[in-house]
Nucleic acid binder design. Structure first.
Lengths: 194, 194, 194, 194
DNA sequence: CATGAATGAGACTTCATTCAT
DNA sequence: TATGAATGAAGTCTCATTCAT
């Protein structure tokens, strides 16, 4: 954990709000500072530069994200149940935090390649959770014994991500969580061993 | 044989190269002009502004993209074959044009929201092709009669897109086209009626 | 006379309209060409450059202006009558041509210093007419025998010009010509010999 | 002793010098910044944009201008004396600051209409001082009881302005202040009650 | 620790003018 | 004569980061 100081979290939360409300390209450091209730210069006592704020934001939020999903699926026994839990939790956590949904699905993708590669590093943790489920499913015989894990993972993540992005672009005006079982059904039908 | 609007195409092709090689944020109009072999000002005889270059680029390329896919699938009779053709064609066209792949998968996504919404408009055409295949498949009995077309389309597009993006981010170092049948197999297994 | 070709006048008249309607800084050569119904390049067969259009415009219009005033005052015998005629004619000619009034009072003054010095050269002809009236008046005993002609001329021209400018800036919404006798009265009271 | 907004005044004074020496159209922000001894960006901490510098310049200088004239004429009892003071002060303040004279008489008039309308707003304050003198003169019986104040004001301002402009255009090579009494004499002769 | 005034690099677009046809 | 497509120079403003207090 990078810092435990209250201002560290203050600034990250301020960044989420400012980016969600103003868009990535209008989220100046000075605005984030103002929202966080600190001086511009103070930002640089907690973060190396602006990019560091964004990476930290993603790490912090995605860290919680993965941690919660791990906890939830730990209680499930089958790959099938675990996958459903992952999709449901993914959707519900974003449905609950509109600002975060906008930031991760739309705004942060406007960042430059370098930053996005770093963000991808963070994402690997999430993708590992998916892989773990798929591998366990193969071993238990629930899923196709010759399932291409990388491919299936891209299918899972690609579908979830596209679904959430479409939902955010449609101003989050329909219920996202109710889609989870349907997606789960189609994916399991595709991956299933029978 | 007289070329039609030669400079227009020249500039768009130059833009693809410059963006692919320099990245979205370093693709200055002057660089595009130089690559196209015209003066900076000439750009503005063919495009309203820089954003207009990017939208036109996407329209032009995606237009060809969709057109070619439509042609190819027109020769196929079953939804299953059509879907395979779509995925194969999608992959092969991007595999053949490395610059275009980088631009559409990575660089153009760094554009601001407004531009991306316009790009999404262009994408609707592509998504319609997917929908047409799925609907035909439902009617013919090949696909689940109660398949949620929107959901399935997000699954198809999300999977294809994520697969291509991963491939581009890995510097296109493995063969993309060979993945097509595998993805197709999984999708059809998921959507199939049996 | 520079040219007798019809296009020469066409272009000048087009310039007056375009400048009056779009303002000095938005009066591009291409707009003037379009208004005149000729190609951009054609302008340069009749004028050396853009500045030459403006100077020629001023010369042409101010030439007619001075000529007409000269004609009118030639028929008057006293300096007093001549001055009244000059003011009246000055006002009435601008009141009749709204576009010209806007161009000479507001728009042409936005030109750079160099151009304005050339315009001033053209104005000297007009100022000479004023001087002639004042000198004749001094000699005839109508006006103060020790009247400072340069000063009085600045007073005449400054007053007329300020009056017209104020009128144009007020959207020409009151009657300009009716002010002429009042101004004349005050000026003559100031310059008169008694 | 702490200066108040030192940079603000620094920049305005720098603008006067740069505009006077380079002309309105060659007075780039970077030149003004350099002359003021600050970075380009610093300008924008004190002014909204370039136009704002010019308006502020005019307000600041014209504000002082009007204030000083008001102070001087406050000590005079008759309208006649007040008018003389106004003309003398107007002339002497510009004679003393050659740069300012060039800027207000020549350069600032090249600005676009929008800016000039804003400048005119500032001028109203000055014109009010003239009106006050004329009205007081009418009431005291010094000036014609039926004097048209607006007309007379245009005559006063038009004459002064034309005189100064002519003087500046002649490179300020003769003594401006010595003209004041002569102009005053002619104006009073024109407006006087006797 | 905290502040916030100051810095300065960097790019899109316009439009007068040319010249091959 | 007439055309009009092509040229290319030039300047305002933003905002991440620093550093003296």
């Amino acid at each position: 954990m990078k810092q435990q100081k209250p201002k560290y979290k203050q600034i990250i939360d301020a960044a989420v709000i400012v980016i969600a409300e103003n868009g990535y390209h209008h989220a100046q450091v000075s605005k984030i500072a103002k929202q966080a209730g600190v001086a511009d210069g103070t930002i640089y006592l907690y973060f190396k530069n602006k990019e560091d704020i964004l990476i930290s934001l993603f790490q912090e939020k995605m860290g919680l994200f993965v941690e919660k999903i791990r906890q939830e699926i730990a209680g499930k026994s089958t790959a099938k149940e675990k996958l459903l839990t992952l999709i449901e939790k993914h959707f519900s956590m974003l449905a609950v935090d509109q600002h975060l949904a906008i930031v991760t699905q739309l705004e942060l993708r406007q960042s430059n390649l370098e930053l996005r590669l770093k963000i991808n590093e963070v994402l690997k943790d999430y993708l590992q959770v998916v892989d773990d489920i798929l591998i366990a499913g193969k071993e238990s015989g629930e899923l196709l014994h010759d399932l291409d894990v990388r491919l299936a993972r891209q299918m899972v993540f690609g579908t979830i991500d596209e679904t959430v992005t479409t939902w955010v672009m449609n101003d989050q005006k329909y219920d996202l969580t109710s889609i989870a079982p349907k997606i789960h059904h189609l994916l399991i039908k595709g991956f299933g061993a029978n």
